[in-house]
Simulated scan of single mutants.
Amino acid sequence: MSIHRFISSASLVTALLLTQGCGSGGSENFVKLQGAGASFPAPLYNKWFKAYSNSHDDVQIDYQSVGSGQGVKSVIDRTVDFGASDAAMKPDEMASVDGGVQLLPMTAGSVVLAYNLEGVDELKLSREAYVNIFLGKITKWNDPAIVATNEGVELPDQPINVVVRSDSSGTTYVFTKHLAEINSEFSESVGVEKAPNWPVGTKSKGNEGVTASINTTPGSIGYIEFGYAVGAKLAMASLENKAGSFIKPSIESAQAAMASVAMPEDLIAWMPDPEGDDAYPIVTYTWIICYKTYPNAETVQALKDVLTYCLTEGQKSSEQLGYIPLPETVVEQVQAALDSITVSAPASAT
């Protein structure tokens, strides 16, 4: 047999095995887990899932970064094995899933205001300034509200190009939750939404799309997850926090924000305007959404093993990509909740 025929035959056998393993019934030796949802944690999730699959050839995890809204919809429609959302799930959404869901915080991160402004390496934005930029009331970079907190900085007489999300987004939900918390006009006119009716802004899909738009459009500003800004080497504004301090986004300032809130029993914790002199003001947990029960033991075991890896070994790589490792007490709570996921009882014979 020639080497080319051998390679071709081996490839065919591999393809057949993968096809059998990815079928609806699965196999004893291969499990494919399908997930979809938030773009906010996607770089970290993809790193975790790739690392796990590389060391476990009997498990494949496919995660699609489609936005939190679509992730929740996919869970409700039962087109995935797990979803992911920065907006958690609302009680009515949870109630619509037969058998129930289990939300598991897996990491945390900051929502930053990244900008593209030549010659401006440091920028401080007051609460008044950044709310009014996204309300469309501040339209120039040399607006007095921005100048007032940036003494000595040469701010151009240039229009502000605001970039917002086009899709149903947990990052948007977290950002609007913060803006609504600190400004009554924003709360009443825009509100807390995954896909609000923004009064201003060009739209891009996903954290990936907003990052690309900021990177390629001079004079722009937009909200993205911290790790995306770091990866694209975008400048990030220091934001005024509840204590009146201007805080740069960092792992440390995010951890200071997380210290202000305890994780409740349902594992859904919010910090829309955290306390603390050193706390960065826009920080959130992000959740993987599992079903309470699954139809077969192989899926349950694979899912638990993957997520246990993410909660333990995986946390060590969080900071490298701009995410905040979960506090040990939270890891313990999440692991206990993970244990509650079971195999559904077979239907009774009729």
Rank of each mutant, 00 (worst) to 15 (best):
V192K: 14
N207Y: 03
V200W: 11
S220F: 05
V163E: 10
L239D: 10
S245T: 14
A243Q: 04
L179I: 00
S245A: 15
E185F: 00
N197A: 15
P144T: 00
K242G: 02
P156H: 03
K242Q: 14
A145W: 01
N150L: 00
N197K: 01
G152L: 05
S168Y: 08
K177I: 03
T202G: 08
I182Q: 05
A243P: 02
V147Q: 14
A212S: 13
E240N: 05
H178Q: 13
E185A: 11
V147E: 13
N215F: 12
G244L: 07
I182S: 05
A229R: 08
G222F: 11
T171R: 10
F175I: 12
K242H: 00
F246L: 04
E240Y: 05
T149H: 09
N142C: 03
G231L: 06
G191A: 05
Y228L: 10
I221Q: 02
N215T: 15
E193H: 07
E188R: 09
D157N: 14
G244S: 06
I221P: 08
V230R: 15
M236H: 03
F246W: 07
T149M: 04
N241K: 09
S184Y: 05
T139A: 05
I247M: 11
F175E: 11
T149W: 07
K140E: 04
A195Y: 09
N161E: 13
L179Y: 06
Y223T: 13
S245V: 10
R165T: 13
I182M: 09
T202C: 01
G209K: 08
A229Y: 00
K177Q: 15
Y223S: 14
N207T: 04
N207M: 06
V200E: 06
V190A: 02
P159E: 14
P199H: 12
G191M: 06
V153Q: 08
V164Q: 07
N241M: 00
D143R: 02
L239K: 07
I247P: 01
G244V: 01
F186M: 04
G191C: 07
S204T: 00
S189L: 05
G170M: 01
N197Y: 00
V174K: 07
I247R: 03
A145Y: 05
E225G: 11
E151P: 10
F246R: 02
G227A: 10
G244F: 08
G222A: 06
T171K: 12
S168C: 13
K194A: 10
A212R: 14
G191W: 01
I146K: 01
V153A: 10
G152M: 11
V163F: 04
G170A: 03
I138Q: 01
D157A: 12
S168E: 13
H178N: 15
N207P: 04
I182G: 03
E181R: 15
I146F: 03
A235H: 09
G201R: 06
E151T: 15
T202H: 12
W141S: 04
N161T: 13
G152I: 05
F246T: 08
I214D: 08
K205I: 08
Y228F: 15
K233A: 10
G201C: 00
V147N: 02
T216E: 15
K205E: 15
A237Y: 06
G227R: 06
